[in-house]
């Protein structure tokens, strides 16, 4: 359903200065349960991310809450439904709804996943694996181009979580995502937890993945918790967003930003959502690591250029 935005009266810009970009500090995924804490004292969190699909409604309290949030903080719209890696044309209604939210809320960032989530016009409610092939790459680049034209701005695309390797894969995932960004002009949202999970599940070295990501493409970083699959026949990790960030994921994060410099960093916690203080402590941990990396300016400027 397309959101019915009245021309000017609902635009956030009447009240709020547009955020040019996200601060290179910790943000968190916004949860309605935290609304009282967030408006009382959000420290150390300085920005919030939401899924635009949850706000693709005509009106009501959800949009009102997002309006209040945006009046106080920069926000990032992080989509889950564009199906950029799908086998069919993008959903034009969905693109229009996204554009309406971008116009109304003037987010500091717009991002999507390298994944598909629907086929034959049916929404499948998950982030499904895109084949790592030249044909899929060409399709992805076209899809990103269409989105960037539709919303009138550069977007970021997020590396997937993998549970299995598709038999037709013919290129490395790092090559695939870097080429997608270079060819389409978009940036990368690097989910370090996804890299850790995929490396574990598919058997590659997470450090190797982290070390080849170009600093100039990275616009945002995601951190989240994962869990071991209930099916114990197989040693597989699931991207549950239900736990604190694991220690080896923090270590990978530190390795990445020590090389590429401080980047806006999001803590994702979507299931078994904890009390605000627990989430704020995760954000504080990310800020500590970001501060450390800022204290090595010569190190950073030298490596950002590489």
């Amino acid at each position: 359903m397309t959101t019915g935005i009245a021309p000017d009266q609902d635009r956030i810009s009447k009240n709020v200065i547009p955020a040019a970009s996200l601060p290179a500090q910790a943000g968190v995924g916004f949860k309605a349960d935290h609304i009282a804490d967030v408006f009382e004292n959000a420290e150390p969190v300085t920005w919030f991310e939401v899924h635009p699909e949850n706000y693709m409604v005509s009106g009501g309290p959800r949009l009102q809450m997002l309006t209040q949030l945006r009046q106080n903080f920069p926000i990032s719209l992080h989509g889950v439904g564009l199906s950029l890696g799908g086998g069919e044309p993008l959903d034009k209604n969905h693109l229009r709804s996204l554009r309406a939210l971008v116009d109304r809320f003037e987010p500091a960032q717009v991002s999507e996943h390298i994944a598909w989530s629907g086929h034959d016009g049916k929404y499948l409610a998950d982030l499904l694996p895109t084949p790592l092939t030249s044909a899929a790459l060409a399709h992805l680049v076209d899809a990103i181009d269409e989105v960037q034209n539709a919303v009138g701005r550069r977007i970021l695309i997020e590396n997937p979580t993998s549970y299995l390797a598709l038999p037709q894969n013919s290129m490395a995932e790092t090559d695939f995502i870097i080429q997608a960004a270079r060819q389409s002009g978009c940036g990368l949202l690097i989910d370090v937890n996804n890299i850790f999970i995929s490396a574990h599940n598919l058997g590659f070295a997470a450090n190797d993945y982290i070390d080849v990501l170009p600093a100039d493409l990275i616009g945002e970083i995601h951190l989240a918790g994962h869990e071991q699959d209930a099916d114990t026949r197989d040693d597989v990790l699931i991207d549950t967003h239900s736990r604190p960030v694991a220690d080896p994921v923090w270590a990978l994060y530190q390795r990445l930003i020590t090389r590429v410099g401080a980047k806006p960093t999001l803590i994702e916690w979507d299931n078994d959502v904890p009390a605000w203080q627990v989430l704020a402590a995760e954000a504080a941990h990310a800020n500590d690591i970001l501060d450390q990396c800022r204290h090595w300016p010569e190190n950073q400027s030298q490596r950002v250029a590489s």
Binding site: G86, G87, E88, W116, H119, D120, K122, L124, L128, P131, T133, S134, A135, A136, H139, L166, P167, Q168, S170
Partner: peptide
């Protein structure tokens, strides 16, 4: 022609099995 699975076949089979 390139020997790669076509998008249509891949997505259709995956979605059907899901």
């Amino acid at each position: 022609d390139t020997g790669e699975a076509s998008d249509a076949g891949f997505h259709q089979a995956f979605a059907t099995a899901l």
